[in-house]
């Protein structure tokens, strides 16, 4: 169904703005989608388990500052800075996971706290300095396209296929659904609930690190402002893609469609109306209408 909406949107767009749907424009705009797409993958897993991660944008900020501080301010080799940024991302995700599994706090609260804490740390560490001046080879990794996709685009495709297979075909994927459907039952039936949660929240941190490293290459800077308000966009995309916020239901393909729909809507609204203030209006409405339509249809189908 989402696909139909997407097609309808593109037909409308093509009618109003023929240039918008040209392959050149679409290719050019593609670089805007990868942050959202990359972060939406682990978020799909997390939401299927009934959890949530509000700290993704803040994890991006902290990893970004790590990268900038080590390479630009600390004059360490770039590979070391990248490695450190990845480690920081993983550590952030892991810390979320520990609070959720070992301490037993609701993910919404844990990540609400780390949402402030991680960005706060990033601000404190950088004393909001903006680090720029990355080497050309690093920037070309972020900017250049290889066969019409950027490096992160290819990375996303590989990751998405991998995630889709894991979620649909492996015992691990089934345990993700089981946790979301009924966590207590999952525990009693011997599934390693905590291990699964640790993995997915850590992956979320890793994805944030990858996205922010790519951002540094693409825009040649690293700072504590990176990824501001990102979390709400990512959650919107995943939920739009049909994943139930209560857990137990969702697919990677749905998430990809959700991401695509938000991306195209946003770009089209900007392209056609030139009113940035319409974008939140339309995206917000899209979210409510899509989920409402889904809820109504579900109810009808369960009745018949």
């Amino acid at each position: 169904m989402l696909l139909l909406v997407l097609i309808a949107l593109m037909l409308t767009a093509g009618h109003l703005e023929p240039k918008f749907v040209s392959s050149r424009s679409q290719e050019g705009l593609l670089s805007h989608v990868w942050d959202l797409a990359m972060l939406a993958l682990p978020m799909t897993f997390i939401i299927i388990t009934g959890g949530i991660d509000l700290s993704v944008g803040s994890m991006m900020a902290l990893t970004s500052v790590t990268l900038g501080k080590l390479y630009i301010a600390g004059h360490h080799p770039l590979w070391l800075a990248i490695l450190a940024a990845l480690c920081v991302g993983i550590a952030c995700g892991l810390l979320n996971a520990i609070f959720i599994t070992k301490v037993g706090v609701h993910p919404l609260i844990v990540t609400l706290a780390t949402y402030s804490a991680y960005r706060g740390l990033a601000e404190g560490i950088s004393l909001p300095e903006i680090y720029s001046g990355f080497p050309d080879w690093f920037r070309s990794l972020g900017q250049n396209t290889y066969g019409s996709l950027q490096l992160i685009g290819w990375l996303f495709i590989i990751a998405a296929v991998f995630c889709a297979i894991v979620l649909a075909k492996t015992p691990f994927g089934r345990s993700i659904y089981a946790i979301g459907f009924n966590e207590t039952a999952a525990r009693f039936s011997g599934l390693k609930v905590n291990r699964a949660k640790v993995i997915i929240y850590t992956l979320s941190g890793l994805a944030a690190a990858i996205v922010s490293i790519n951002y540094s290459g693409l825009r040649d800077n690293a700072q504590a402002n990176v990824g501001l308000n990102m979390e709400l966009d990512v959650i919107t995309a995943v939920v739009l893609g049909g994943t139930s916020i209560f857990g137990g239901r969702g697919r990677i393909l749905g998430t990809i469609l959700g991401v695509a729909l938000i991306h195209e809507t946003r770009e089209f609204v900007g392209w056609h109306y030139h009113r940035n203030e319409y974008v939140p209006l339309v995206v917000g409405a899209l979210l409510i209408v899509a989920v409402a339509a889904n809820a109504l249809l579900m109810r009808r189908s369960s009745r018949t």
Binding site: V5, I7, A8, L11, T12, A13, A290, A293, L297
Partner: peptide, 13 residues
């Protein structure tokens, strides 16, 4: 549902 949604989008457009 999808036709309705598409119509909404098209109309607003």
């Amino acid at each position: 549902g999808s036709v309705a949604l598409a119509a909404v989008i098209a109309l607003s457009g």
